[in-house]
């Protein structure tokens, strides 16, 4: 196997992995702070893919520009969803919350099917087909942009969590929710803000994906299953864990596609997943049980 082929698999895997990480960061943040598993995450990704596609097909807005519009919009959507649907309906019981997020996902998926039909759609922007000559290989420009932007957004998210008042409050609610109330933090608001941030990052990931991907009512599944794997492999609720596991899984998927063929690529992901859990049951960065 040629060096160029291996290198391009590595680079392509890293690019996919960064987007997996961004999708997984939203999921792991919501789990870490609200202690809920958000089954609607994939559906929200799909919804954002459609939103970005509509902006392109109706107004000619590039998905990269759409990111700037859709991230705040989806923050508001996520905030409202948690504050007025998932939070009140869940009533603090884990099983309820699980079913409510599953219900929200079924509603969104079927609405998309009813409105857009089952057809697969893509955007066609000149940028999507340009490549960069790396000497030994050609790298499609959208993957490079996705990689860099996903890492920048992850870094921004990390700074938000660790260097701001809001981030301090979010981390306080995650660990000691009663003590957080006693210093005057509005826990329901912080829960909704966190859900909003998770939803905004999934919308950003959608905009980065769209130029090299497609959208259909079931487009979310392909990513969210991998994102769940990333979250568990990194350690539930761990930010650096999700980032590292996302990149690792992207690269593993890419190499396993090279050896076993693209349709069998997921084998590598789940083999690695099983291995990690065998030796570290709580994931790479998980708290030791």
């Amino acid at each position: 196997m040629s060096t160029a082929l291996l290198l391009s698999a590595l680079v392509g895997g890293l690019a996919n992995g960064a987007v997996y990480a961004l999708v997984a960061l939203g999921l792991t943040l919501i789990y870490g702070v609200l202690h809920i598993i958000n089954f609607a995450h994939g559906s929200l990704l799909m919804l954002a893919l459609y939103a970005s596609w509509i902006l392109w097909s109706a107004l000619g807005v590039s998905p990269y520009v759409a990111l700037v519009l859709l991230a705040p919009l989806f923050f508001a959507l996520g905030y409202a969803l948690q504050r007025w649907v998932i939070g009140p309906a869940g009533q603090g019981r884990d099983a309820n919350v699980l079913l409510v997020t599953l219900g929200v996902s079924i509603v969104i998926d079927n609405l998309a099917l009813a409105v857009f039909g089952p057809a697969t759609r893509t955007v066609d922007i000149p940028l999507a087909t340009s490549t960069i000559d790396l000497g030994v290989m050609y790298l499609p420009l959208p993957r490079l942009i996705a990689f860099v932007a996903a890492l920048l957004l992850s870094g921004g998210l990390w700074l938000l969590l660790n260097r701001t008042d809001l981030g301090r409050a979010i981390r306080a609610v995650a660990r000691e929710s009663d003590a957080a109330r006693l210093v005057g933090i509005r826990v329901a608001h912080i829960h909704a803000v966190t859900f909003g941030i998770g939803t905004a990052s999934v919308a950003a990931a959608a905009c980065l994906l769209l130029p090299s991907f497609y959208v259909s009512p079931d487009a979310g599944y392909a990513f969210v299953l991998v994102a769940f794997t990333v979250v568990v492999m990194g350690g539930m609720g761990s930010f650096p864990g999700a980032l590292l596991a996302g990149l690792v899984i992207g690269v593993i998927e890419s190499f396993s596609g090279l050896w076993f063929g693209p349709s069998l690529a997921p084998i590598g992901i789940y083999a690695a997943f099983a291995l990690v859990l065998l030796f570290r049951p709580t994931g790479l960065f998980g708290a030791r049980a």
């Binding site: 008042d165 981390r171 003590a179 210093v183």
Partner: peptide, 23 residues
């Protein structure tokens, strides 16, 4: 000031104090 201290164990000392003045 709750029983059992209930400090934010993973925050730094300064972050704990800053959270005290959250309002």
């Amino acid at each position: 000031v709750p029983e059992g201290r209930r400090i934010f164990a993973r925050h730094t000392v300064e972050e704990n104090l800053l959270l005290g003045a959250y309002r």
